[in-house]
């Protein structure tokens, strides 16, 4: 059990769904991204995903692409992710890193796992690494009790749902629709079905991401998922406001709206 699963189970005990907020480290700067993550936690995010910017983010839509590109232009490094993880853990929220595979691989998977543990992180989400390709990462993460969070998609076969669920700890990340990250008018209708199929394949916890940007959407997803994952809508708050105070105000307001959503209050 990790800080992550403890928190998700406690939230389930409250009879609600968890709000999981994503922000990339380093945008608009390392310090400001850390303050933004702390702000999210204070405003009602239950779990934080610290995004590690990558040069070729094939699963991300325009909002996160732009933020990641600027973070890299600003000189963000892998070690900065652990700084952010430490800060979020100190702020009292369970925290996971979301990273494409190559930065982890180049950093050294064992070293990455060691530093993630040392910073107080619970695990990692790997959007371009499926369990059948993740042998080296699993060997590094398992002995250190890090959660290995893999994705399922509407296109996943029964066989792959079972295989993915078997190798996943923490929660299974269910992609609500076929596509990349970004805000959308509606969450995929297939999301509920995918969550049900993932649970039927043995998943203890299933959280839903991709396309959730409003309190109403969060409330809708919260009916059937253990957690609601929001990224682009939060990143947008930082993109839209050059001024830090204004950005954090927007972030606070958006987080509060989503937090009401996962409590069925919107």
């Amino acid at each position: 059990m990790s800080a992550l699963t403890d928190r998700l189970d406690a939230i389930r005990g409250e009879g609600r769904s968890a709000l999981i907020g994503y922000l990339p480290v380093g945008f608009p700067s390392v310090e400001r991204s850390v303050r933004a993550m702390e702000t999210m936690v204070a405003a009602g995010v239950d779990v934080v995903e610290v995004g590690l910017p990558y040069s070729d983010p094939v699963m991300d839509g325009p909002t996160i692409q732009v933020a990641a590109e600027r973070a890299l232009q600003g000189g963000t490094h892998i070690a900065d992710a652990f700084t952010a993880v430490r800060a979020v853990a100190d702020a009292g929220a369970p925290v996971v890193v979301m990273s494409y595979y190559n930065p982890m691989l180049q950093y050294g998977l064992e070293r990455f796992a060691d530093d993630l543990v040392a910073a107080g992180g619970s695990g990692a989400i790997t959007p371009d690494l499926t369990p059948d390709a993740a042998g080296l990462w699993l060997s590094a993460a398992r002995p250190r009790h890090l959660d290995t969070i893999f994705l399922v998609a509407p296109s996943s076969t029964q066989e792959r749902l079972h295989m993915t669920v078997a190798e996943t700890t923490g929660f299974v990340y269910a992609a609500s629709l076929m596509g990349v990250t970004g805000e959308r008018a509606s969450v995929g209708a297939g999301a509920e079905q995918l969550v049900a199929a993932t649970r039927a394949a043995g998943a203890a916890r299933v959280c839903v991401g991709l396309g959730v940007s409003t309190g109403a959407q969060a409330a809708d997803v919260a009916r059937f998922a253990d957690g609601v994952i929001v990224g682009s809508a939060l990143v947008r708050c930082l993109l839209d406001h050059e001024d830090e105070d204004a950005a954090l105000d927007a972030l606070r307001a958006k987080t509060a709206e989503l937090a009401r959503g996962v409590r069925g209050e919107s």
């Binding site: 094939v58 390709a133 994705l151 998609a153 296109s155 993915t164």
Partner: peptide, 12 residues
């Protein structure tokens, strides 16, 4: 070689 891709593309 290998296949390091998002799950969504594996079926295809």
């Amino acid at each position: 070689g290998g296949r390091f891709v998002p799950e969504a593309l594996v079926a295809a």
